[in-house]
């Protein structure tokens, strides 16, 4: 198998459970074992920490210290925090990040609010990829004191139309996005999806009957999900070699150039 690019891994500690890959070195070993040549890494600290500047600094340090460049840090931005613009600047200028990761449902804003449009515009001005995590876990199994609904993506198709420079990757979205919303998002060249939460028999093969394969990226949601679950999805679907390569790495490589 040629090298994989995994656009959906996360460092540090999941708040509710220790994970075998929550030490960066262990995660890197797992990724290397499965021929991952690049992984786009957010931080679990970005979900709930208010000192998000230090969370992003730690993320950048960890990515630098482990894996000899395999990890690309994607810092978290919370636009409900005062002076979030400085966090964005540091991600871009200080940490030299290629993109950012957003958690609107954990940070408490809706996509229809002006602050989200402002953040998208600021990220686009800096040429940053924006990853938006639609959910982190099944809402049925969440901690009773922290029940977080998936992000409502309803406003997104219209909003994206107005931001021509943005490159948006929706993480953990494919159990939520269906039907008309999927088609409206697919119609926009700037929106991409990844495989971590894609389900159903031969799920990748079925999905690319609906959307162009160039819109789909390989994502594992490791270490919260078993990495092997994502890997085996590539085996389950009948894909021609060029499609397999595109989803496994080439689509992501083109996006991050």
């Amino acid at each position: 198998m040629t090298g994989l690019i995994d656009v959906n891994v996360t460092l540090s500690r999941w708040p509710f459970r220790r994970l075998r890959g929550d030490e960066t070195s262990a995660l890197v070993n797992k990724l290397r074992e499965h021929h991952v040549v690049q992984a786009w890494a957010g931080t679990f600290d970005g979900l709930l920490h208010k000192d998000i500047s230090s969370a992003n600094a730690r993320l950048a340090e960890e990515c630098h210290a482990h894996g000899r460049g395999i990890l690309l840090p994607f810092g978290s931005i919370n636009p409900t925090l005062p002076d979030w613009e400085e966090d964005l600047r540091r991600c871009h200028e200080v940490h030299k990040m290629r993109g950012i990761r957003l958690h609107p449902n954990y940070h408490g804003y809706r996509l229809g609010e002006p602050i989200f449009a402002k953040l998208l515009a600021a990220a686009a001005d800096r040429g940053l990829i924006v990853q938006l995590a639609v959910l982190m876990e099944d809402k049925r199994t969440q901690h009773p004191l922290l029940q977080i609904a998936p992000v409502d993506l309803g406003p997104l198709p219209e909003l994206i139309k107005q931001k021509p420079g943005i490159r948006l990757v929706l993480l953990n979205s494919l159990q939520v996005i269906r039907g008309d919303l999927l088609l409206r998002l697919v119609a926009n060249e700037q929106v991409f999806f990844e495989t971590a939460c894609l389900e159903g028999l031969g799920g990748i093969g079925k999905l690319i009957e609906q959307i162009y394969a160039r819109k789909l990226l390989f994502g594992s949601h490791a270490p919260l999900f078993y990495f092997e679950s994502a890997l085996l999805k590539l085996k389950e679907s009948v894909l021609d070699e060029s499609t397999r390569k595109a989803i496994s790495a080439e689509n992501a490589r083109r996006l991050v150039l």
Binding site: L198, E199, G200, L201, G202, G203, F225, Y226, F227, E228, S229, A230, L231, L232, K233, K235, E236
Partner: peptide, 10 residues
């Protein structure tokens, strides 16, 4: 078929 063999074998 609601889930994939793959995700669960993982």
């Amino acid at each position: 078929g609601g889930r994939s063999f793959a995700s669960q074998l993982g």
